[in-house]
């Protein structure tokens, strides 16, 4: 399945001191932005409205042109290639009505292939393949957008963006209009998909929780398009650069950070297996620390038994309340030996 769907994994995207000032405005919308999104990573742009996150994204496919600096995709500047060719080779997913209502689903998916002159047969085959990829039935091909639910439409939007297998994707609050359950579902599926296709994705969202979930890296922008911090979710939550970022990621960042790690990792860290009381609650190894903590609190116990994912009878170890607390308190949880206290804001 993997090879058939994607032969072009992501390439690096680099912003080099990019500044954008709209005509007639004194302050820039994007101010000297420099960041590098490694190939195959999802970079979430978050920030307040007016923080320039959508602007920053649109600079990449030049829907908005920057004044200074340079943006490189796979090492070549976005201004060095033909603007039409550039855009056709970047997947673009937007919120709301990105689909063309007058075209069938198949025609929607086939927009860019048609612009590139693919044969009708090839487009048809690709549409079937992509519908399969985003888990929609093939008989959706001949339907129209208005006949689909919001979640289904957004899947088609995703399929359309992937039509020519572009190495880079821009996603502008793609799941923002969906209800929480559908959003969660489609987020999970996109992450699974991304594991296979490994595109480089710039993902705009105003929802920090979505950014934490989706982003390999998160860029927090502040008013005026200034980059406040750029790092992994864990870095942002563990050591926010300043009060603004701390505030933005939320006062509950300790808890959020628990969501980033799995119970099974902590069992490994703990090493020795303490004999847990027989009535200690159990939790799967694939559960997040947050879930573990919740189970622990709900049970009143101080120790958790962690079980094998597929076999809840096999206990792989235990995790204590203290361990959970230490896990949040560490600065560098990926290297647990290096114990440094998080810089409190």
């Amino acid at each position: 399945m993997t090879e058939a769907h994607s032969q072009r994994p992501g390439v690096e995207i680099e912003f080099r001191s990019v500044t954008k000032t709209y005509p007639g405005q004194d302050t820039p919308a994007i101010d000297n932005l420099s960041l590098t999104v490694p190939a195959g990573d999802i970079c979430c742009l978050v920030g307040p409205s007016g923080g320039g996150k959508t602007t920053a994204m649109k600079l990449v496919n030049r829907l908005i042109d920057f004044n200074e600096g340079e943006i490189l995709i796979g090492g070549s500047g976005v201004r060095d290639v033909d603007i039409t060719a550039l855009r056709r080779d970047i997947g673009y997913v937007i919120q709301q009505v990105g689909l063309f209502p007058h075209m069938t689903i198949e025609a929607n998916i086939g927009v860019v292939p048609r612009l590139l002159g693919w044969s009708a047969d090839r487009i048809k085959a690709r549409a079937v393949e992509l519908l399969d990829l985003v888990r929609l039935d093939q008989n959706f091909a001949k339907r129209y957008p208005s006949q689909l639910s919001g979640g289904q439409q957004q899947r088609v939007g995703l399929a359309r963006a992937l039509a020519v297998d572009p190495p880079v994707m821009l996603m502008d609050e793609p799941f923002g209009a969906l209800d929480p359950i559908t959003r969660n579902e489609i987020q999970d599926e996109f992450l699974k998909l991304q594991n296979e296709i490994a595109k480089t994705v710039i993902f705009v969202t105003h929802d920090i929780d979505e950014a934490i979930k989706m982003g390999d890296r998160i860029a927090v922008l502040r008013q005026g398009g200034v980059l406040a911090q750029y790092g992994t979710a864990d870095e942002l939550l563990g050591s926010p650069a300043d009060e603004y970022v701390a505030d933005f990621v939320g006062a509950d960042r300790g808890l959020k950070r628990l969501s980033l790690r799995l119970m099974r990792d902590l069992v490994k860290v703990s090493g020795e297996n303490h004999a847990a009381p027989a009535d200690a609650p159990t939790v799967k190894g694939s559960a997040t620390l947050r879930t573990g903590l919740s189970v622990l609190f709900a049970s009143g116990s101080r120790v958790l038994k962690v079980t094998h994912d597929d076999d809840s009878a096999t206990v792989i170890g235990t995790v204590t309340l203290d361990q959970l607390q230490d896990a949040v308190y560490e600065t560098a949880p990926k290297a647990p030996t290096d114990v440094v206290v998080a810089g409190e804001a």
Binding site: L63, A85, R87, I90, I94, G98, F100, V111, L115
Partner: peptide
């Protein structure tokens, strides 16, 4: 939004006018 999606996907002006 639809028009901008078309532009973002690489449609030229007349393509946007006639196809969207």
């Amino acid at each position: 939004g639809m028009v901008e999606a078309a532009r973002g996907m690489g449609m030229k002006d007349l393509e946007i006018l006639f196809q969207v």
